[in-house]
Amino acid sequence: MPPDRSCGSCTQCCQALEIQILDKPAGILCHHNTGTGCGIYPERPEVCARWYCLWRRIEALPAALRPDRSGVIFSLESRPPVADSPDAACIVGRAVDGIQAFDRWEAVEAFAMFVREGSLPVWKVSDGDATLVNPGLDTARQ
């Protein structure tokens, strides 16, 4: 993990993600959110514990791309954000403050970086709509 990459006051994942075990739909703030973090962090569901905010993991993503600053959350996920898709690792960029967040230079550059890397499918998600930006190596070969 890059140095100085903590969530700080960012709790965007607590709103953006669907957490079925908590009956929490995507786009609704989790009732366990304290305003500064997770109120059940030590006992949080496995799906929360396994979820990775890529801003915290990839030093090449600028400070301005922290989700609460940029309105975009990038994550590595085990399945595409579309119904009836087979489980497969992918990069997902979610606009949490509306689709216009994708127009910020930081988000444009981050999507370009993930596409250039090319090994995983890359998705853009906003308001329930998912768009495949890059199919990734495995999908492109099929």
Rank of each mutant, 00 (worst) to 15 (best):
R94E: 02
I19V: 15
P2E: 05
P135V: 04
A130P: 00
E106Q: 14
N33I: 08
V72D: 01
F102T: 06
A89H: 02
V47P: 02
R66H: 14
V47N: 06
C13H: 05
K124S: 12
E117F: 12
Q12V: 14
A64D: 12
P45I: 14
G37E: 08
R50N: 12
D4A: 09
P62Q: 11
L22R: 09
F114I: 06
A88W: 00
R66A: 15
A83K: 05
H31I: 02
L76F: 15
E117D: 07
P86R: 11
R104L: 13
I99M: 02
I99N: 00
A107Q: 05
T131Q: 07
A63Q: 14
G136L: 09
A49P: 01
F74E: 01
M1R: 02
G71P: 08
I58P: 00
D103Q: 14
C38I: 02
R69D: 09
R141H: 09
C30P: 02
C7K: 04
G128Y: 11
Y41V: 01
D127M: 12
D127W: 10
Q100I: 09
C14E: 04
S75C: 14
K24N: 01
F114A: 12
C14G: 07
V122W: 06
C53K: 08
R79E: 10
R66P: 13
A140L: 11
D4R: 03
A16V: 15
A112S: 13
G35V: 07
G118P: 10
R57K: 12
P25H: 06
D68K: 04
D129Y: 07
V82E: 13
Q15M: 09
P135K: 07
A130G: 04
P135Y: 07
A64T: 15
T131A: 09
E18H: 14
F114E: 14
W105V: 07
G35K: 03
L132I: 11
G128P: 06
W51K: 05
D129E: 14
L65C: 05
P3T: 12
A95F: 02
R50L: 14
S126G: 04
S6L: 10
A63C: 02
C38G: 05
A63S: 13
C48I: 03
I73A: 10
C13L: 10
A26N: 04
D127K: 13
N134C: 13
S78I: 08
W105P: 05
C13M: 11
G128E: 13
A101Q: 03
R79Q: 11
R79H: 13
V133M: 13
V96G: 05
A110T: 02
A63I: 15
G128H: 10
Q12M: 15
P81S: 00
V115L: 04
R104N: 10
A64F: 06
E46N: 10
I58V: 13
Y41T: 01
P25Y: 08
W55T: 03
A95V: 02
D97I: 00
P86D: 13
A16F: 11
D97V: 01
R5K: 12
C90L: 10
S9Y: 05
E18S: 10
G93Q: 04
S9V: 11
K124F: 03
G136M: 08
I28K: 05
K24T: 08
L137H: 11
N33M: 06
V115W: 06
V108T: 05
T36E: 06
R141C: 09
V72K: 01
D127A: 15
A107I: 12
A26G: 05
R69F: 10
D138N: 06
V96W: 02
I91W: 02
L65K: 01
V115Q: 10
D23S: 15
V72N: 02
R50K: 11
